[in-house]
Amino acid sequence: MSKLVVSNLSINRAELPVVSSLDISVESGAISVVLGANGAGKTTLLEGLSGIIPVAGGSIAIDGRDIHKARPGVRSREGLAHVEQGRTVFRQLTTEENLKVSLHSGADLAEAYALFPELVQRRTVRASLLSGGEQQMLVIARALLTRPKVLLIDEMSAGLAPVIVTRLMSAVRKLADNGLAVLLVEQFAALALSIGNRAYVMRRGRVVHDGDCMKLLKSPDELHRLYLGG
């Protein structure tokens, strides 16, 4: 059964439709990849799902419970975690304090350090002084400590070196293999498809393709056509 089911979702920005009549789902233990050109509505979709911006219509359900009207904090407590674009660490707090902020009952800091051992040596360093890669590891680890059922990740590769992106992708795959449902929005299409299970391609706020990641990875011409239309 799908952990996250999004049905007929519409989201507006400044009263203009950005996402329209969108249906997607994410299963436990799987990664659903959302691809699309700039302006396709990918980030708006994630912001609508986590409650940063209100949705105009449709439903968002986790384990069958509709949360589309709930505030972001309530959605988090229902099991939805959102790793935003731009590495949103708490800049004035240390690495460990960032992790402690999100530490929910039953979670353990050791889980975060096990996922990213690189952070152990940086635990007392102020987050604003971490490298871009370390900051991205920190926000993913921080989201993990909220004990989510569904993890939304927005453009985690932006501005990072390929070797770091590969490291982050393998960590996300590991999280999915441990049972988490992941919805990954990504510009690095090939890398995202290589770790994903199901691929959605968005264009102008609508899903124009829904299929298997491996199939799409093996058809670059098809992917190119879906991105650009025609």
Binding site: S76, A81, T88, Q92, E97, K100, A143
Partner: peptide
């Protein structure tokens, strides 16, 4: 205190804090 830590996080990035389930 944990509440103090949450308040410092809230002061830095209110939305990021709320997304982590902090009762902003």
């Amino acid at each position: 205190t944990k509440v103090g830590l949450n308040l410092r996080a809230l002061a830095d990035r209110p939305m990021a804090a709320e997304l982590l389930g902090i009762r902003v």
